[in-house]
Design a protein around this nucleic acid. Structure first.
Lengths: 142, 142
DNA sequence: TCAACAGTTTAGAATAATTATAATTTATAA
DNA sequence: TTATAAATTATAATTATTCTAAACTGTTGA
């Protein structure tokens, strides 16, 4: 049950013109139960799988960045060769599975509040986020 | 006072052949008081500034990765367009100054131990690291 | 309703970081 | 010293991302 109207409204509210492509990208991103973690490549793949459509790479980049700038998406740095995005835009923590390269949200109560006792003078803290790297117990040589 | 012998020994110990280039890179990286945070580009620049030498880009990449694999360097992900490395290879936390794009080590006592209460089943925790993003108080529009 | 215009999309070129290749050179063990 | 395995190098290739300029589309207001 796809409620595109939602997205059209949402996009309009933030001053993004609700074009066909943007609405479709929003469908793929936000019509989900769970948070969606993805790279641009994942997203392009999903679009062609789920919608059977081709949206130009440039448009996907533009749209994702537009959504991010407007606060609908959050960029997450895990490794340096790719950008990950997260549909959960709140400040929250992650597990990163080094075997499968999967990113998993931490439940709020899985990590205690992190207490930063000192800060750089003259600066304000924008976010405090924890990355827990996990891997299967065996393959740890070399 | 450059003690290359140290590096020659150290490299040899871990099974890295102490070539001219590797020893020079080690000098630049490890003959410092403070932890050194750098991108490959920073490093290449430092090499040509401090040693007045040109080491091929490929060699710098290879060497940095070799050092990293052997545990002399640690890779850190802040943003996705570049790899940062850190000569402090212990598990520790960082401030990232979003204005200047500088990475700063947290002192051990600046952040309380992070308590991860739940883990992904079947996986073991490799590291738990905090990134505190800071920025100057003003420029926060858009 | 429709014209006009600004904002979008698009394919493809350009760029930047990184990795691969293959020939040459070097460190080291015998 | 010499053979050989490993390292270095310049350069090409690759990959992720951004830019560009032309074509297209959503929106505004006459």
């Amino acid at each position: 049950m796809t409620k595109n109207f939602n997205f059209i409204e949402k996009l309009r509210e933030t001053g993004l013109r609700p074009t066909k492509q943007r609405v479709k990208i929003c469908e793929v991103l936000f019509n989900r139960d769970k948070t969606f973690h993805f790279t641009i490549n994942d997203l392009v793949k999903k679009i062609s799988e789920e919608l059977n459509e081709k949206i130009s790479l440039a448009t996907v980049y533009n749209t994702v960045h537009a959504l991010q700038k407007k606060g609908y998406l959050k960029e997450i740095s895990i490794n340096s060769d790719k950008s990950y995005f997260d549909t959960n835009t709140t400040v929250h923590h992650h597990f990163y599975d080094e075997d499968t390269h999967q990113l998993i949200d931490c439940d709020e109560n899985e990590i205690e509040n992190v207490n930063v006792k000192n800060n750089i003078t003259g600066k304000k803290i924008n976010s405090v986020e924890v990355l827990v790297r996990v891997a299967s117990d065996n393959q740890n040589q070399n």
